[in-house]
């Protein structure tokens, strides 16, 4: 086995800047396959940017991203991506099943239309997120939680080895949060690697087994039981974290 294939995602010396302002500074990160990893950090820490850099959606100033030991360019189809819900225009004229079917476009290829097979895949994915009865609903009529489940279903039809979710719990209702966690747990059991930008420190030990603490620099990363400490949280969030740290990290 190639040395590098030990990691699902490998980030080396990654620096990203917007308009000369560094957003990510010299990030090193190794994510072992099969973990459920949370990326946490204050606003403006570069969490979404790190996900986008791993997806190849932003061009780094320096550094490298490797997926299962191979360069980003040859990694098409390796990562299923769930973007931040709020960045999409939900007024787009389409329905739920159509959005989920979009997950198959990479495999269907040019000019060909999606057929019965793709529709079945999309329906199965909707079933998995308990949205089957909403298949024909226009997306403009969904609640926040339903929108999030649709985006997760779209990622599920990609059946990729790595899943990256950007703030999937932002503004969703409690059943959706539970449904998403259940799906992520299932994926992790089948050996998929899950990477989630997460906000709620209190649920980290319950939902995840691996964590990256990020604040422009990578403060620390590793198993939750080892690196999710008050000391690291203070380094990541500054003084403001007192109460939250007591609530979350204190439980360990």
């Amino acid at each position: 086995m190639d040395e590098h294939e030990r990691w699902a995602l490998e980030v080396e010396d990654l620096t990203v800047a917007y308009a000369d302002q560094p957003v990510l500074w010299d990030i090193d990160l190794n994510v072992p396959p099969g973990v459920k990893m949370a990326i946490i950090g204050p606003n403006g820490a570069g969490k979404s940017t790190l996900v986008k850099a791993a997806m190849g959606l932003v061009n780094p100033v320096a550094g490298e991203v490797r997926i299962f030991g191979r360069g980003r360019e040859s990694a098409e189809g390796q990562i299923a991506y769930v973007p931040q819900r709020a960045t999409l225009s939900w007024d787009f004229p389409t329905d739920v099943i159509d959005v989920v079917t979009m997950g198959t476009y990479g495999k269907v290829g040019w000019i060909r239309r999606c057929g019965a097979a793709e529709k079945r895949q999309a329906e199965a994915a909707l079933e998995q997120v308990a949205m089957a009865e909403f298949a024909r609903r226009p997306i403009a009529e969904l609640s926040g939680g339903q929108q999030q489940r649709v985006l997760l279903a779209r990622a599920l039809v990609q059946d990729a080895p790595i899943y990256m979710l950007d703030e999937p719990f932002q503004g969703v209702d409690a059943p959706t949060e539970r449904a998403i966690i259940a799906v992520l747990d299932e994926l992790a059991e089948t050996g998929k690697t899950i990477i989630v930008v997460h906000h709620d420190l209190q649920t980290i030990p319950e939902y995840f087994d691996y964590v990256l603490l990020l604040n422009v620099r990578a403060i620390d990363s590793g198993p939750v039981s080892e690196v999710f400490t008050e000391e690291n949280l203070r380094l990541t969030f500054g003084g403001r974290v007192g109460v939250l740290a007591a609530a979350g990290a204190g439980k360990l």
Binding site: A80, Y81, P83, T87, L88, F92, T94, M102, Y105, G106
Partner: peptide
């Protein structure tokens, strides 16, 4: 008409289109 589904995805969610390798 020929590039319909790619144009649709580009208009709805360009980041996701890019993640599919389009």
């Amino acid at each position: 008409v020929l590039v319909w589904k790619e144009f649709k995805l580009l208009s709805f969610d360009p980041d996701f289109a890019s993640s599919l390798g389009l």
